[in-house]
């Protein structure tokens, strides 16, 4: 792989890939390729070493057991921490979002997270299942967030992060805010997958990764129709 190639890593698809999160990698790779950016994707299984030199890291949703195991292995491996320290961009979804925090709950016990986001997660009274919608932090300059959430956890944000969005439908972190961001790390509960429903977030990750202020626009006719339909559906629910 050359220095001019954009490298995208999907973290532990063998443990965390329950909700179509592979889609986030496919969409990033395609949106890069359509702009002529050479791109390589890597699916790193939990029995492999985590490379520290990729540009974008993706981690997805999963069940309690695999979530706890993934956190242990990522802490022991250290590659992801080095990558983040070197400025890699990250999209962490659902169980993957929780494990980026200081701690999370899995299988009835508190587990240590990667401590890469100033968040901690515990159990909610009820499971949050359904359409989620929110107004994204204006500093990111993105249109509203849409996704499908399915989680039992509630996430509490510390002063070291900002909410990714203010919830206008659904639950997100706690019924008020959804997701978190700090530096080039984005966390969200949104499946759909997230980048299929929110191509602007995909482009933000690409801009962060290649250090560009803007990217050539793409024909997002179908994504826009999907967004319009889902944003309206969340409002009606």
């Amino acid at each position: 792989m050359s220095e001019s190639t954009l490298r995208i890593v999907w973290i532990y698809p063998d443990l965390l890939s329950t909700y179509g999160d592979r889609g986030n990698m496919l969409i990033l790779a395609r949106r890069a390729a359509l702009r002529g950016i050479p791109v390589e994707t890597y699916s790193i299984r939990s029995d492999q070493a985590m490379p520290a030199t990729a540009d974008i890291y993706l981690i997805g949703g999963g069940e309690d057991g695999p979530q706890a195991l993934a956190a242990q292995r990522l802490i022991a491996d250290g590659g992801l921490h080095r990558a983040v320290a070197q400025g890699a961009a990250v999209l962490a979804v659902c169980a993957g979002y929780q494990l980026f925090g200081a701690s999370f709950f899995a299988k009835g016990a508190q587990c240590a997270g990667l401590d890469l986001l100033d968040i901690r997660s515990d159990r909610g009274e009820t499971r949050a299942v359904g359409e989620v919608r929110g107004d994204i932090d204006p500093r990111l300059g993105l249109p509203p967030l849409t996704g499908f959430e399915n989680h039992g956890g509630r996430t509490h944000l510390g002063p070291g992060v900002a909410p990714l969005a203010r919830v206008t439908a659904g639950i997100g972190n706690d019924g008020q805010t959804e997701g978190a961001w700090h530096g080039k790390i984005l966390g969200t509960y949104a499946h759909g997958p997230a980048l299929a429903r929110n191509p602007a977030i995909a482009d933000l990750l690409l801009r962060w990764a290649i250090g560009a202020d803007s990217l050539a626009p793409l024909d997002d006719t179908w994504a826009d129709r999907l967004r319009g339909e889902r944003l309206a559906a969340a409002g009606a629910a």
Partner: peptide
Amino acid sequence: GFDTSWLYD
């Protein structure tokens, strides 16, 4: 099922 994410599987 209400979640269509599986399309990417």
